[in-house]
Amino acid sequence: MVLELKNVEFEILKEKIVKDFSLVLNYGETKTLFGPSGCGKTTILRIISKLEIPKKGIVVNKFKKISYLFQENRLLDNLTALDNVLLCMNKPDENLVLEHFNLVGLEKKDAYKYPYELSGGMAKRVSFMRAYLSGADLILLDEPFVGLDMDLRNILVNLLAKKLEEKSIACILVTHDRFEAVMMSDEVLFLSKKQAVVKNKVTFDTLPSKRDIAFIQKAVDINFKGVIYYD
């Protein structure tokens, strides 16, 4: 066990946001928090990253470096796209960044643009690469693919899935999209509409890199019947 949350509770102004939440995560595992907006998914990520302190419960985190991809891009305005990524790398490598930018449809000239010069989709890809190339052994992803077209989302998912498998990196994905949950996860935790209560769990034995369209569609049909979150 590298990360454990045990009976965690969190509240704001006496309103309970997370109630009795538990999770265990090891190297090489990807777990998805699946539920509608406002159910407490982001709060759990914030607790793991120590941006929030739970009112009750135990949090044990033995990962050495966490990379947190927020819903917002959060790029530094005074740095170029390239420098935003280099800043967070263990071993900054300009050529490596440029190669990966090219993989996600960003041209070399885009690397030297400032955030205000980037479109929303471009900024999201830069933010993704900042997390992807950071050298972290735990990656937290908060709805990382919202606003991207399906082809681009698939490229990012496949890149990340391959890296997680090869490097035994752990990941927690927050989403309310069924297909993203199946594409990425070893385990999906279905959360209640409020207070992040785990209502059900589904595990997948097939590696994400081996899941084709037929596998994903079948898994969605079986495990997510009547459960649709697009909000």
Rank of each mutant, 00 (worst) to 15 (best):
S49W: 00
S49V: 06
K50H: 10
K50N: 13
L51G: 03
E52A: 14
P54G: 08
P54W: 07
P54M: 03
P54A: 10
P54Y: 07
P54K: 03
K56D: 10
G57R: 01
G57F: 07
G57P: 03
G57L: 09
I58S: 03
V59W: 01
V59C: 05
V60Q: 13
V60I: 15
K62V: 01
F63D: 03
F63Q: 02
F63Y: 05
K64Y: 08
K64A: 13
K65A: 05
K65Y: 09
K65C: 11
K65V: 11
K65H: 07
I66T: 12
S67K: 07
S67Q: 11
Y68G: 01
Y68Q: 04
L69I: 12
Q71F: 13
Q71Y: 12
E72L: 02
E72S: 11
N73L: 04
N73Y: 14
N73K: 00
N73G: 05
R74P: 07
R74E: 11
R74T: 06
L75E: 05
L75V: 08
L75C: 05
L75Y: 10
L75G: 07
L76S: 11
D77R: 11
N78D: 14
N78T: 14
N78S: 13
N78G: 00
N78A: 00
L79Y: 10
T80K: 01
A81D: 07
L82D: 08
